[in-house]
Write a protein that binds this DNA or RNA. Structure first.
Lengths: 318, 318
DNA sequence: CTGAAAGCGCTAACAT
DNA sequence: ATGTTAGCGCTTTCAG
């Protein structure tokens, strides 16, 4: 019986047909739980992330589901706040969910401790956009440094010299990488790092608003361009700048990062960097499935980013 | 052993402590699969929807997860396109996933056939915003008719008489309900239905753009206000109207529906109706959990909507 | 109150 | 090539 339904070889066609007919007749549904007990498989893969923006989450999920569409694997969503602060709890949480594998989005994808513990319990993983150890797990990489350098260079090329940066969540390695990219461009154009205003943020719209408010409250000449480490903060910054009477991009150029939905809906449309989140999720899931099938760890896949110059940037006035 | 870990009565404290200590020491993780085999539970509930907007999905998921946070239940995401066209496949899909129960978002929450089949296989369900049969399953209700009437009344109160409606996906009962609400308001203010331009849409940004383009291409006087059945389409309409040189709200008032993220990020901010999707998902999940615990079907919960008058509406010119 | 044993529905190994 | 049997790790009897 089991042999037929699992399409094993060495079964006579006649028998195969007969069993299939009866199964169909009885609307037989194999009990996946019982099967799981013996095969040691739950046929579930987890997707974990830590409160990112809606459009990022949705793309991530779409990518995983797209790859899973023709598989028997299901996707379980496991948001977990503060991975960094509670790594043991996080791994226990994953273990308790009885997953066959897990796709880790930032910042968990960069936590060496998490990877170590996952290795220890033998749970394979896919990693989205890690900045370090690209050989571990099935990785989808993005060159955040180069991407950030390109946006910064775009601004410098327009002639901006008084710059402000709004950082992302410090527990995300991407934040550091993007800062590095900006710094490389600044150095190449002779802009001293200590002349650049740097404000913290945490990737949320509200933190972008707060950072912009602090930037405007400073004494001294106002910056002519703001580099936000993601679109949500960039939009927050634009909102506050506008309320302060500044025209975008004439009085202030703003760039974001992510090419999220709002970056296209806001007026003026935001200059940003496209991150192919959907493809990255798909690739990482594909690699995870290979790992699950017992294949050797697939090579990390570097995904292309793209600088999208839209309407929120222009040459500084005067 | 099992008796201790499941906190059963009639166990001596001494034994209880000892077992717990050893379990902790060994980092014992009960095998949820084996447990499921005997208890006939997979401890998974599904959440199904059909390509809605990102912010709606995210709120929906957040609501379910919030209620599940302290439960052992996990959430499996089961998007399924064209439920209406393939009901048998849809139910087979749910059955194969071995779920204990399922939360149905529109349009599945309104498909009587789906409910019938789910009843037949004994899978309990929660329903988000159904328009019919509120007694079946654990329902979170919203008065779409009243909500739509209120937005329409707001526009009529401002003095608008030349109106255009952009419909949502026709397979969603909410679309019909919202049209009814608009119609009630129109009738109350003496606006003839055949003077209202009605364009189809499917709840996507792109369909809102297309509908607005068709509205502007018509001969005869331009409408002074557009009622879009959700925010994404409203934003699409605004984008196209702006490209055609119209100022919002001076030349054209636009209202949406949902209070999605973009409705607050777009300039001018969108007048819309808040639907408490998070609460609705939470309540439906709570009801489903009750059903799963063998309790009788909980009473449907009516959730309050709220008209949010923001900056995309004003009195018509002249 | 606690230990031992019998399955839950399936697959894998073992016979035939 | 096909029928048969022993568990997978747990809960639920049933003894003690």
């Amino acid at each position: 019986m089991s042999r037929v339904l699992n399409d094993e070889p060495f079964v006579k066609d006649a028998l195969r047909e007969k069993v299939k007919a009866v199964a169909k007749d009885l609307k037989y549904q194999p009990n996946i739980t019982a099967k799981g007990l013996i095969t040691r498989r739950s046929y579930m893969i987890g997707l974990t992330y830590e409160r990112p923006s809606p459009s990022y989450v949705v793309e991530l999920q779409r990518g995983v589901l797209e790859r899973l569409a023709d598989e028997r694997f299901r996707m379980v969503i496991l948001p977990f706040s503060d991975v960094t602060a509670r790594i043991d709890d996080f791994v226990a949480f994953l273990r308790a969910a009885a997953l066959d594998g897990v796709v880790l989005a930032p910042p968990a994808s960069d936590q060496t401790d998490v990877l170590d513990q996952l290795d220890a319990v033998g749970m394979p993983y896919g990693r989205i956009a890690p900045q370090s150890e690209p050989a571990r797990g099935a990785c989808s990489l993005l060159d955040d440094i180069a991407a950030a350098r390109e946006v910064a260079e775009h601004l410098l090329g327009l002639g901006h010299r008084r710059l402000a940066v709004i950082l992302g969540d410090a527990t995300h390695a991407a934040s550091t990488a993007r800062s590095q990219g900006y710094a490389q461009a600044f150095a190449a154009h002779g802009v001293a790092m200590d002349s650049v205003i740097v404000e913290p943020g945490d990737f949320t719209f509200a933190s972008g608003e707060a950072a912009m408010a602090r930037i405007l409250a400073r004494s001294g000449p106002r910056p002519t361009a703001v580099l936000a480490q993601n679109d949500d903060m960039a939009v927050g910054a634009i909102t506050v700048a506008r309320e302060a009477g500044l025209a975008i991009p004439d009085d202030l150029s703003v760039v974001g990062f992510d090419d999220s939905d709002i970056s296209r809906l806001i007026m003026p449309k935001l200059t940003t960097v496209r991150q192919p989140v959907f493809d990255m999720a798909l690739t990482a899931t594909d690699g995870l499935l290979k790992l699950l099938a017992g294949e050797p760890a697939p090579a990390p896949v570097l995904h292309a980013h793209e600088l999208l110059i839209r309407q929120s940037t222009a040459a500084p006035r005067g």
